[in-house]
Simulated scan of single mutants.
Amino acid sequence: MAFYAYLLLCNDGSYYAGHTDNLGERMAQHQSGAMGGYTAKRLPVRLQWSEEFPTRDEAFDAERRIKGWSRAKKQALIAGDWGLISKLARNRQG
């Protein structure tokens, strides 16, 4: 079984990070408002990025890590710009 970390762009321009074992079903839940909470108030949402992980723990760890990232770093992840992600991480460390 595969697990996924994902990043959504909400209608208000904010990002939402999550994880799941069924990305298609989770997207349908977000779009319908069935998830409640943050995304239900910011519909519609669009999937911007996802990555498959072998375990739920790894997907959850990725979600938690991404939630702590700046907007610029999330946008670099979406663009697949690992050089910029690394640069932004170094800048944050001082």
Rank of each mutant, 00 (worst) to 15 (best):
R64V: 03
A5R: 07
D57Y: 04
Y4S: 07
W82C: 05
Y6C: 03
Y16L: 03
M35Y: 07
P54N: 10
E51M: 12
R71F: 06
A59E: 01
W69C: 02
A89P: 00
D21V: 03
E63K: 14
Y4V: 07
G80W: 03
R71H: 07
R46N: 08
T55W: 12
Y6I: 02
L7I: 10
A89E: 13
I66D: 01
D21I: 00
Q93S: 13
A62G: 01
L43I: 09
N91M: 11
R92N: 13
T39A: 11
A28Y: 07
L77P: 06
W49K: 08
N91A: 14
L7P: 00
G33H: 10
E58I: 05
F60Q: 11
R46G: 01
S50W: 09
L47G: 02
S86I: 08
S14V: 04
R42M: 02
A89S: 15
H19M: 05
G36H: 13
M27D: 05
T20E: 02
D21H: 14
L88A: 06
H30C: 03
R42A: 04
T55P: 01
E51N: 13
W69I: 00
W69A: 01
Q75F: 00
G37K: 13
N22A: 14
Y16G: 00
A34V: 10
L8Y: 10
S50F: 10
Q31N: 05
R92I: 10
T20I: 05
L84G: 06
C10T: 12
E63C: 05
V45A: 15
D61Q: 11
S50H: 13
T39E: 02
R46L: 08
D57A: 14
D12C: 09
K41A: 14
G18V: 03
W82L: 14
Y15R: 04
L7Q: 00
A72M: 08
K87V: 14
I66N: 02
K74R: 15
F53T: 01
A17L: 00
M1I: 06
R64C: 04
A59W: 05
D61Y: 03
G36P: 07
S14C: 08
K74L: 11
Q48W: 01
A40K: 15
W82Y: 12
R92Y: 09
W49A: 13
G83M: 07
I66G: 01
R56F: 04
L47V: 06
C10H: 08
Y6S: 02
P44I: 11
R56Y: 04
N11T: 06
K41W: 03
G24W: 03
A79F: 00
L8R: 11
I78W: 00
N22I: 09
G18C: 04
L9K: 14
K74M: 10
I78S: 11
D21L: 03
A76C: 12
S50I: 00
Y4L: 06
